[in-house]
C-alpha cells in the first residue's frame, strides 16, 4: 500500500482531516473521504466538467487536481452553495427554468456559473454561453441552463444593488 498523507481540507467552511494517497484526486477525496458526493465524476479527463468545484473561489476540475494539492486552500462544493434551506439564486433559477433533467451534470454547472459570476457579475449573453461551453450536459440541450444562468445573474446583480 503506497504511503498516505495527512491532509487538512477546508470545504464549505468546515475542516476535514483525512489521510489519503497522493494519487487520489480532489474529486475522490471530496466524495469518498469527506462524504460530499454532490461532486460527480463523468470523464476524469477534464472535458465534461461534472466535477467542477471552487478552489480559492475559482472554478476548477476536481478530477485534475490531487487532494493533497488542496491543503491550505478553500474548497466550495455544491453542498455549500445554498444558504441553509434557502437555495442560491442559481439553484432557484435552474429549478424554475428546468435547467436540469437527470441532475448528474448539475453540480458542475452550478459551481462553474457561481465561480464565473463571482469574477464577472456582468457577463454578457455571449460570455455566459462561452463559460457554459466548459461543461457537458447530455439531457437539456443547454438552453434552459443558459437561460437559468442569465436570470440568476440578473437576480444576483439586483440583490447586490440593495
Amino acid at each position: 500500500m503506497p504511503d498516505k498523507r495527512d491532509v487538512t481540507l477546508a470545504v464549505n467552511g468546515k475542516t476535514y482531516a483525512v489521510s489519503v494517497e497522493p494519487r487520489r484526486s480532489l474529486a475522490d477525496v471530496l466524495r469518498d473521504d469527506c462524504g460530499l458526493t454532490g461532486t460527480h465524476l463523468g470523464c476524469e479527463h477534464g472535458v465534461c466538467g461534472a466535477c467542477t468545484v471552487l478552489v480559492n473561489e475559482k472554478p476548477v476540475r476536481a478530477c485534475l487536481m490531487f487532494g493533497v494539492q488542496a491543503e491550505g486552500k478553500t474548497v466550495r462544493t455544491v453542498e455549500g452553495l445554498a444558504d441553509g434551506d434557502t437555495l442560491h439564486p442559481l439553484q432557484q433559477a435552474f429549478w424554475e427554468n428546468h435547467g436540469l433533467q437527470c441532475g448528474f451534470c448539475t453540480p458542475g454547472f452550478l459551481m462553474l456559473a457561481a465561480g464565473a459570476l463571482q469574477e464577472n457579475p456582468d457577463m454578457t449573453d455571449d460570455d455566459i454561453k462561452d463559460v457554459l461551453s466548459s461543461n457537458l450536459c447530455r439531457c437539456t440541450g443547454y438552453q434552459n441552463i443558459v437561460k437559468a444562468v442569465r436570470l440568476a445573474a440578473r437576480e444576483m446583480r439586483a440583490r447586490a444593488r440593495i
Binding site: P59, L64, A116, S134
Partner: peptide
Amino acid sequence: VRYIAHYPIRQR
C-alpha cells in the same frame, strides 16, 4: 487565451 480549452482549465 479564449481558445485555450475552457474557463476552469484556464484557471489552473
